[in-house]
C-alpha cells in the first residue's frame, strides 16, 4: 500500500514539474505598427499573467486573462515608436506553470513607391489649353485684319 502512495506522489510531482502552458506567437517577426497575437494553451479556467519585455528590458505589455476551456488569446498592437529588436513574452499561469517565447520587431519599411504625375499632366493640359486659346485668338484677329 505504501508503495502505491509513493508511486502516486511521484506521479503528481512529475506532473507538477512537467506542467507548462503552450504559447504560440504569431507572427514571429512583425513591423512596428503591426499586430502580434499570443495564443495560450493551459488548463481549464486558470488565470494567466502575460508580460512582454522589449529589447531594453522595459515592460511593453502586461495583461491578466482567464482561460476558457484551457485556451486564451491576447493581441498586442505594436506601437509605431516601439524599440526594434528581440522581444520576450513571459506567460505564467496558476495551474499549468510558466513558459516564454520570443519575437522580433523590425522597422516599418517599404510601401509602394510611384511618381505622382498629376502636376506634370495638369501643367501640360494648361499649356495646351493656353496654346489653343492663343491660336484661336490669332486666327480670329488674323481674319479681321485681312
Amino acid at each position: 500500500m505504501k508503495a502505491r502512495y509513493a508511486l502516486l506522489g511521484l506521479l503528481l510531482l512529475a506532473a507538477a514539474v512537467l506542467a507548462q502552458p503552450t504559447i504560440t506567437v504569431t507572427p514571429s517577426t512583425v513591423s512596428a505598427g503591426g499586430t502580434v497575437e499570443i495564443k495560450i494553451s493551459g488548463v481549464d479556467a486558470e488565470k494567466c499573467g502575460i508580460e512582454i519585455v522589449d529589447p531594453a528590458g522595459a515592460k511593453a505589455f502586461v495583461k491578466e486573462i482567464t482561460l476558457s476551456n484551457g485556451q486564451g488569446v491576447v493581441t498586442w498592437d505594436v506601437p509605431l515608436a516601439a524599440r526594434l529588436g528581440a522581444y520576450t513574452v513571459y506567460v505564467s499561469c496558476t495551474t499549468s506553470g510558466a513558459a516564454t517565447a520570443k519575437f522580433t520587431v523590425t522597422a516599418l519599411v517599404g510601401g509602394e513607391a510611384h511618381k505622382d504625375l498629376a502636376p506634370l499632366l495638369m501643367t501640360m493640359l494648361s499649356a495646351l489649353a493656353a496654346l489653343l486659346a492663343a491660336a484661336l485668338i490669332v486666327r480670329r484677329l488674323g481674319g479681321k485684319l485681312t
Partner: peptide, 18 residues
C-alpha cells in the same frame, strides 16, 4: 494585483499568483 511579474517569479517557488 500579483505576487510579482511573470518574468520575476518562476513556475515554482515562488509561483506566479494573482
Amino acid at each position: 494585483v500579483w505576487n510579482g511579474f511573470p518574468s520575476e517569479v518562476g513556475p515554482k517557488c515562488p509561483k506566479w499568483t494573482p
